[in-house]
Amino acid sequence: MTVVIVKPGYAPYEADINGLDEMQKVVGGIIQAIYPFEDNAAVVCNDEGLFLDLPFNRSVPGGYGGVFGNFFVCGLGEEDFCSLTPEQVKAYKKEFHSAEILIGAKGNTPITLKVQPKAAGGSGREKGRDTPPGRE
Rank of each mutant, 00 (worst) to 15 (best):
R58H: 06
R135P: 02
P86Q: 05
E136V: 04
S123H: 07
D16Q: 15
N108H: 12
G19C: 00
Y64M: 06
G63K: 08
V43P: 03
A11M: 00
K93W: 02
I34A: 01
I17L: 01
K90S: 14
E126A: 02
P133D: 12
S83V: 04
G122V: 13
A42L: 07
A15R: 03
G19I: 00
H97V: 09
E95H: 12
E95V: 05
P110K: 07
G75K: 09
P133V: 05
L20C: 11
E48C: 00
T112S: 02
F56E: 06
G69Q: 06
I103V: 13
I30F: 13
G77D: 05
E95Q: 13
Q116P: 10
P55N: 09
K93A: 01
G121Y: 00
G107M: 10
D130L: 12
P132A: 01
F72K: 09
P55K: 10
I30S: 14
P132K: 10
E38L: 09
T2R: 12
C45D: 06
I17T: 10
E87C: 06
I30N: 15
V3R: 08
G29R: 07
Y64C: 06
M1H: 06
N40V: 00
H97R: 12
G104Y: 08
V27D: 07
E79W: 14
E48P: 05
Q24G: 06
I30W: 13
N40P: 04
F68G: 07
A105D: 13
F51A: 15
I111M: 03
A15K: 01
Y13Q: 07
E136M: 02
V27W: 05
G107T: 02
L54V: 04
K90G: 10
M23Q: 14
I103K: 15
R125K: 13
N57W: 00
F51Q: 15
N46E: 09
E87K: 10
K118Q: 15
Q88G: 02
K127A: 13
S123N: 08
I5R: 02
K118M: 15
P12W: 00
V3Q: 06
A91M: 09
Q32W: 10
H97L: 11
A99W: 01
I31G: 04
V67M: 08
A91I: 01
Y10K: 09
V26S: 08
F72E: 01
L52I: 12
F96I: 05
F71N: 09
V44S: 03
G63Q: 03
G104T: 15
G77Q: 05
D21L: 14
D80Y: 11
E78L: 10
A15G: 08
Y92E: 03
V44I: 09
G9S: 00
D130T: 15
